[in-house]
């Protein structure tokens, strides 16, 4: 197997007596969409925080693109090409959609100690930002304040901002959260369109989306990875089915049928 883009080795994180990440080993391969699923409280959010740099693991190491990043700040990881979206929509509501994306472009266009020229007239920021918005299907909404966009559009904008930093790895924290059926379908199409060009780690509850998109799936339960494999392997895995009892089991089945 080729060198993984992102590697987690023996990651541990606990809050008091609560173990959120328990000796986690995980390799994310170049160009794949790797979904991480698990019941509530499985430690998905804690894991995202450790990958993005908000939380330091108690033990273990994380390496990205062949470099150890365990102790790097959030901003430094972003500079290396690790972009993320947030579970709670994190856009700048006072700024227009274009401003939001232009800010993301600016983040990776050298330092921002530029005090005099108005950023609004800066073609070096506006043009690439406009292109990303077009690509993501928000071109017509470019000059709309982000607060006026629909929930689905805001989620798209969130992805657009992450893409505008030209990352090699995209960490998506529940991109379908709070979305209707149509909006989810649009998001799936959007992610499919960028598939292959970059590596995606996808944390998601929507099983239809996970099975439609993922190349590989890791199932997290109580901070441990109980299984990693291709979607059909995960579907057939007895331990996974045991973890997803009741209604969750049903949703796993229906997703399996839909993609059969």
């Amino acid at each position: 197997m080729v060198e993984p883009v992102l590697r987690m080795e023996g990651l541990c994180k606990s809050f008091g007596s609560l173990i959120a990440t328990d000796d986690l080993h995980l390799d994310i391969a170049q160009g794949e969409i790797h979904a991480i699923i698990g019941p509530n409280g499985a430690g998905k959010t804690t894991l995202v925080a450790q990958i993005s740099g908000e939380l330091r693991p108690d033990r273990g190491r994380i390496s990205f693109a062949g470099r150890e990043i365990t102790r790097l700040s959030v901003a430094a990881r972003s500079a290396l090409g690790l972009a993320r979206s947030f579970q709670i929509t994190s856009i700048f509501p006072d700024f227009t959609a274009l401003d939001n994306v232009a800010l993301a472009v600016q983040a990776h266009a050298g330092h921002s100690f530029r005090f005099w020229r108005p950023a609004h007239g800066d073609a070096a920021l506006r043009q690439p930002a406009g292109e990303v918005l077009e690509r993501i299907g928000l071109g017509a909404r470019a000059n709309e304040p982000a607060a006026n966009l629909s929930h689905g559009e805001q989620r798209q904008l969130e992805i657009a901002m992450a893409l505008a930093t030209e990352p090699s790895l995209l960490l998506l924290d529940e991109p379908m959260a709070g979305m209707g059926r149509d909006e989810s379908a649009r998001m799936v199409a959007l992610l499919q369109s960028v598939k292959g060009r970059l590596t995606i780690v996808l944390i998601e509850h929507d099983m239809d989306a996970v099975f439609a998109l993922a190349d590989r799936i890791t199932v997290l339960v109580y901070g441990r990875a109980i299984a990693t494999g291709r979607p059909e392997e995960i579907r057939a895995n007895a331990a996974v089915r045991a973890a997803y009892l009741g209604t969750e089991n049903a949703s796993l089945d229906s997703a399996a049928d839909a993609n059969a």
Binding site: S90, F92, P93, A119, H120, M161
Partner: peptide, 28 residues
């Protein structure tokens, strides 16, 4: 002028959501 410059955009955005700015790669 400052408020509208690249620097100003960073400062204003930090007010709204500093965490997001760091995730975008800014050393806020």
């Amino acid at each position: 002028r400052l408020v509208q410059s690249r620097f100003g955009m960073v400062i204003r955005a930090c007010r709204t959501n500093e965490k997001r700015m760091q995730a975008l790669g800014f050393q806020t």
